[in-house]
C-alpha cells in the first residue's frame, strides 16, 4: 500500500485555482522532490496534505485512510509532520521546549497528573525531556538547549524546525525549502542530515526546494509543478533534460 496518495486534488482560493487535479503517490521510504517556479502551488500542496487548507476537490489518503474532514492536529497525530518555508518556531520558548511541545500528543499523562504533580507526571516528563534532548543532540543543537529559539542563527533555526517535526513521530515528513537562505557548505551538511534522518527514522520525505544541487543529489524522483499542474515526473536525470521543465523555469524560447 502506498504511504501517501493524493487523488486528483485541487484547491481554489475565491475562484482562483492554486492547484488543479494533482495526483501524487509516495511509497514508504521514498524521498521525492516537489519543484517548480515560484507561485506554482507547491506550498499549497503541503497545505492540502496537512489539512490547513483542505482540498476543494479530491482526496488525500495516508496508508489508505481518507484524511478528509480531519483537523491539522489530527493529521499530524496520524503521522505527517512538516517544516515551514518562512520559519515558524515558537520564538520566545526555549529550544528544548520547542521540541517538547511537539510531543504533547504523546505526553503520557493527564490534566490531573499535571495539576497535582503525580509520580506519573514526573516519570513522563523525564522521558519527554530525554527524547527531546536526544533529538537536539542529533541536530547538533545541544549547546542551545535553553536559549530562546528566536535568538538562534538562521541555519540552526532550520535544523530546529526539523527536530520539532521529528518530535511528533512522523511517518511522512514534508520539508518546505529547508535550504532557503543557507550557504553552500550548510547545504552540504543539510543534505547529509536529511539522508541520515530518513534512514534512521525510517521516514518517507517529500521536499520542496529551489536549490537544484540539493534536489538533484538527494531525491530519487521529482514532480514538477507549474501553474498548479504537474508538467513532468521522473528521475532527476530525466527532469534535467525535460524541455517543458526548462521552459517553465526559463520562459518560452529558452529551449531552442
Amino acid at each position: 500500500m502506498p504511504l501517501l496518495e493524493c487523488r486528483n486534488i485541487s484547491r481554489y482560493f475565491g475562484g482562483l485555482r492554486a492547484v488543479g487535479g494533482l495526483n501524487l503517490t509516495l511509497e514508504p521510504g521514498e524521498l521525492v522532490g516537489l519543484i517548480g517556479p515560484n507561485g506554482a502551488g507547491k506550498t499549497t500542496v503541503f497545505n492540502m496534505i496537512t489539512g490547513i487548507f483542505p482540498p476543494t476537490e479530491g482526496q488525500v489518503l495516508l496508508e489508505g485512510r481518507d484524511l478528509s474532514g480531519l483537523a491539522s492536529f489530527q493529521v499530524t497525530q496520524l503521522g505527517i509532520a512538516r517544516t515551514f518555508q518562512n520559519i515558524r518556531l515558537y520564538k520566545e520558548m526555549s529550544v528544548l521546549d520547542n521540541v517538547r511541545t511537539a510531543m504533547h500528543a504523546g505526553r503520557g499523562y493527564g490534566l490531573f497528573d499535571a495539576l497535582l504533580r503525580t509520580r506519573r507526571f514526573g516519570a513522563a516528563e523525564r522521558r519527554l525531556t530525554e527524547q527531546a534532548e536526544a533529538l537536539l543532540e542529533r541536530m547538533k543543537l545541544t549547546a542551545r538547549r535553553d536559549e530562546p529559539a528566536g535568538s538562534l542563527p538562521y541555519g540552526e533555526q532550520r535544523r530546529l524546525e526539523i527536530a520539532r517535526a521529528l518530535a511528533t513521530s512522523p511517518k511522512l515528513l514534508l520539508l518546505d525549502e529547508p535550504a532557503a537562505g543557507m550557504n553552500p557548505s550548510e547545504v552540504g551538511e543539510l543534505l547529509e542530515l536529511v539522508r541520515s534522518i530518513q534512514r534512521d527514522f525510517g521516514l518517507t520525505i517529500l521536499l520542496i526546494e529551489h536549490q537544484m544541487s540539493l534536489v538533484m543529489n538527494l531525491c530519487q524522483r521529482l514532480v514538477v509543478l507549474d501553474f498548479g499542474e504537474v508538467i513532468a515526473r521522473g528521475t532527476p536525470a530525466e527532469i534535467q533534460s525535460d524541455a517543458r521543465v526548462l521552459e517553465a523555469y526559463l520562459g518560452k524560447g529558452a529551449t531552442a
Partner: peptide
C-alpha cells in the same frame, strides 16, 4: 506564539 504552527505540531 504561533497558533498555526502549534496546530501542525499535533
Amino acid at each position: 506564539e504561533d497558533e498555526v504552527a502549534a496546530d501542525l505540531m499535533g
